[in-house]
Simulated scan of single mutants.
Amino acid sequence: MISIKVDTRATMSALSNATRQIPYAISKGINDIAVGLQKHERGVMESVLDKPTKYTLNSLFVAKGSKANPTATVGLKDVPKHSTHYLEPMVKGGRRHKKGNEVAFGNRWLTPSYAAAELGLIDQYGNFKRSVLQQLLSYFSAAERSSGYSANSTNATRAKLAKMKRTYWDSKTGKMKTVTKKQLIKDPTRGYKTIGGKQFFISMGRGSGGSGNQHLAAGIWQKSGVHGVDVKPVLMQAKAPTYSKRFDFYGEAQRFVNKHGAAIMSAAVAQALKTAR
């Protein structure tokens, strides 16, 4: 958060003949500087951050000053009460706090897998889709721990997502075919158990499990196909991410005020003199 103050002694002198406009000129100049700074910082974010979302670009607020208190503030919106803003590691460097979904999934650091884009799970900004993330939280009955409301999947919902069926190899066509209801009535065990949609499961990491024979890396996986043999990673457990300082929020603010502050204040003074009565 940045509080903007400017040396107003020259301004006071210029306004000696229009004393009633002094508070207005000062507060307007300060507020115009703050609005200009907000726009400048947005431009900096666009250039130094990787595909910033609209939410990120609009994450700065301006609290304007008044004639009685000519101090304007430019800061980050929605700072959590018991944590730090998600952009703070970009401003100061270092580690970020775990996200709500990471806490819900066993307090682990998570990152999208190499297959996430192939599976259509990544949005235009390169982030994991929020809708899919909510689906995963619901699937593993972790939604309440993450978002504070009940949105957990039922067995029926999971079954609908899996689209279970039985298939068999048709040697005439050289393709896998679905066992019909009539065929299942005659022989319920015909064909192979097949996941027509998808199922999700969690791996605790290589060597884990009751028999210690888990060969998949720790994370959330998706399976489909005959006996669920088509397995692909979705979200992988990772080491705590460490960020380098990329967004020089405070330095950019100082440079902007040094470069443009006087001109903006002078323009406010000129308008005050013009409108003086």
Rank of each mutant, 00 (worst) to 15 (best):
M1P: 07
M1Q: 11
I4F: 11
I4Y: 10
D7C: 12
D7N: 15
T8I: 14
S16M: 08
S16P: 03
R20V: 14
Q21G: 00
I22T: 05
I26Y: 07
K28E: 08
G29T: 10
G29Y: 09
I30L: 06
N31W: 00
K39G: 01
H40F: 13
G43L: 05
V44P: 00
M45R: 12
S47K: 14
S47T: 15
L49E: 11
K54P: 09
Y55H: 10
Y55F: 15
Y55D: 10
L57G: 08
F61H: 14
K67I: 00
T71R: 05
V74D: 07
V74H: 14
G75H: 04
G75C: 05
L76F: 14
V79G: 05
H82W: 02
T84G: 01
P89V: 00
V91T: 07
K92R: 13
H97W: 11
K99Y: 06
K99A: 11
G100N: 11
V103S: 04
A104D: 03
G106K: 00
N107H: 13
L110I: 03
E118G: 01
D123N: 11
Y125A: 06
K129S: 00
R130M: 02
Q135F: 02
Y139I: 04
S146G: 10
S147L: 06
S153H: 00
N155Y: 04
A156P: 04
T157Y: 00
K160P: 01
K165E: 13
D170T: 09
K172S: 13
G174F: 08
G174W: 08
K175A: 08
K175L: 12
T178V: 01
T180G: 06
K181A: 14
Q183L: 09
Q183H: 05
I185V: 15
D187P: 06
D187F: 14
K193F: 13
G196C: 06
Q199M: 06
Q199T: 12
S203L: 05
G209E: 08
G212S: 05
N213H: 10
Q214V: 15
A217C: 01
V226D: 02
H227Y: 13
G228P: 12
G228Y: 10
G228N: 07
D230N: 12
V231H: 02
K232E: 14
P233K: 03
K239G: 11
P241Y: 05
Y243L: 11
F247G: 07
F249G: 12
E252Q: 10
R255S: 14
R255Y: 05
V257I: 14
K259M: 09
M265V: 06
S266N: 14
A267C: 03
A267I: 08
A268Q: 12
A268F: 04
L273R: 04
K274P: 03
K274A: 15
